[in-house]
């Protein structure tokens, strides 16, 4: 049987770089067949982005370059993926399970009358074809889903797949920007995030440091930032910390907010309500530091410290720095 094409939508950041989830998406695609990237980039950014996709395993790239920033929501990416679909007859489509990715998957599924698998944490192939793996109710359950027939459109949880594809020299096929086939919302403005932080993206970071209400104040939350920077980690927060104004909503980890699955999750001053656990308990190793010995986070922590994060963390940073030298 010929290798099956697996379309992978790879979002391009305003800077021209691929999003952090690109490596996991292509890694997952390679487990199923031939990874075929679909890119929509700004003018002059396309070739570099296509090469970057190749390094992460894309054997072929369908590239659309926009002269201007996109003025319609979802449509440019959707039409690019739809055109690549026409050209490649894929067996699966992988998109990141983020806001834009979900919109693309949703519209494409209806348009092509295909089955969808939302928020998959892994993919594999069985005798019948493509199978998506899911983690349900805060990872209390694991399920597998598959299409009755046809291709499967999958939104993949960021950071969930560790497999990486081998680098390839991609064949780049340029597509013209297509007219939207569906009615679309207009983009009227874009405000770049001011805190262009050097920290890795929370969703795809290997290590995540999250701060909670226990850090006591916005200033206190700086402790989580310090540790994140010392470890090169992504920064997260509990809902209580977000509600208290210590951190922006974009950092919220939990049932509402972002789900993360890093190698190491360090919770500082987070009691660990079930809603929070739902967003992080697939992490490989969980470390919790909390004053309250009865905090539920300790029930799932691989290493728990009953104590004051403000005393433990500086010592931790110092020790790690000393060992690194």
């Amino acid at each position: 049987m010929a290798e099956q094409n697996v379309l992978v939508f790879l979002p391009v950041l305003p800077s021209g770089e691929l999003v952090g989830s690109a490596a996991g998406l292509l890694g997952a695609a390679a487990q199923l067949g031939t990874p075929v990237g679909v890119l929509v980039a700004g003018a002059g950014q396309g070739q570099a982005a296509a090469q970057a996709a190749g390094e992460l395993g894309a054997a072929k790239v369908y590239l659309t370059e926009n002269d201007d920033a996109p003025t319609t929501l979802t449509a440019p990416a959707l039409e690019a993926v739809a055109a690549a679909w026409e050209a490649t007859d894929p067996e699966a489509v992988l998109v990141p399970n983020d806001i834009d990715g979900r919109d693309i998957a949703a519209r494409l599924a209806v348009r092509t009358s295909s089955a969808v698998a939302a928020d998959a944490v892994g993919v594999h192939r069985d005798a019948e074809g493509v199978v998506a793996e899911h983690s349900v109710y805060g990872s209390a359950f694991t399920t597998e889903s598959a299409p009755t027939h046809g291709a499967l459109i999958i939104t993949l949880r960021e950071g969930a797949v560790e497999a990486r594809a081998e680098a390839a020299q991609p064949e780049v096929i340029t597509l013209d920007a297509a007219q939207p086939k569906s009615a679309a919302a207009v983009i009227t403005g874009f405000a770049e995030n001011v805190e262009a932080s050097s920290r890795p993206d929370l969703r795809s970071a290997k290590i995540v440091v999250s701060g909670g209400r226990g850090l006591g104040s916005k200033e206190g939350f700086g402790l989580a930032e310090q540790l994140a920077d010392a470890l090169g980690a992504g920064l997260g927060a509990s809902r209580a910390a977000v509600d208290a104004g210590y951190a922006p909503y974009s950092l919220q980890v939990g049932q509402t907010g972002v789900s993360v699955a890093p190698d190491l999750y360090i919770a500082l001053g987070i009691s660990g309500a079930v809603q929070h656990q739902a967003g992080m308990q697939t992490a490989k190793t969980i470390v919790a530091i909390n004053k309250d010995p009865e905090a539920p986070i300790f029930d799932i922590a691989d290493f728990g410290i009953v104590g004051d994060a403000f005393e433990v963390v500086p010592q931790l940073i110092e020790t790690i720095k000393a060992k690194a030298q």
């Binding site: 309250d292 010995p293 009953v306 104590g307 005393e311």
Partner: peptide
């Protein structure tokens, strides 16, 4: 018995 000041703060 708890004597750690941080924990005792809660009491």
């Amino acid at each position: 018995v708890v004597t750690d000041p941080a924990t005792m703060e809660n009491y």
